[in-house]
Every structure is written in C-alpha cells, then in structure tokens.
Amino acid sequence: MLHLVNKSPYDGSSLNTATSIMQNGDTLLLIEDGVYGAVKAGKAAPLLEGHSVSVLGPDLAARGITEDKLADGINVIDYAGFVDMVEANDKVQSWL
C-alpha cells in the first residue's frame, strides 16, 4: 500500500497516524506540506525510522529544502515517479 501525507507533522497528526499504521512492504510518500517531515534535524524525523519513505522533489524545492537536509535513506522523486508509485501499489491511502 502507498501512504500519502500532505500535512506538516507539526500541524496535525497525519504523519504520526500514517507511520503507526504502515506495514512491511508499504511505502510512504510525503507531498506538499508533508515534506517538512523529511527534514533530518526536525523533531518529527524519528517517525520515519524503519519505513520506506519518498518525497516529492518539486515540493521540497518550493519550500527551500535542499536534499542534504533530509533524513537518511529518503528517496526524492518527481511527478513521473509519483505516477509510477501509484501504479506500482494496489491501494493508495491519503492521510488528508
């Protein structure tokens, strides 16, 4: 299953909920304000540990976050990669 989070982890519980429900083989994709959760130095970063995590590059750039600021092991994708991920997963769960 693909889990989408588009809200800041500091302004709601979406990332917390998503990461606590994710199972082995699931993937998390952070988009829009969700990308703030991928910043290594942020307090929310430990939530990502042990999960397969991707972030949408254009949303990182819009917010001035460079790739060197990201937590380890995070995969940066573009819009085409987003489409591929949706296609590769049987279900998409959006934690709006």
């Binding site: 800041s8 500091y10 750039a61 917010r63 001035g64």
Partner: peptide, 23 residues
C-alpha cells in the same frame, strides 16, 4: 510561530509546483 516560521526560509523555488513564489 509554529509552521509559520517556514514562511521566512531561504531558497524557496516554486517553479516546479506552478505557484507564485512570494518569499
């Protein structure tokens, strides 16, 4: 304060998301 501090960050480039960069 809270997520509002993100408004002031450097290096914002919105060309990839089709929105006005007002930073």
């Amino acid at each position: 304060m809270d997520d509002g501090v993100y408004q002031l960050t450097k290096g914002q480039d919105t060309s990839g998301i089709g929105m006005k960069n007002f930073s």
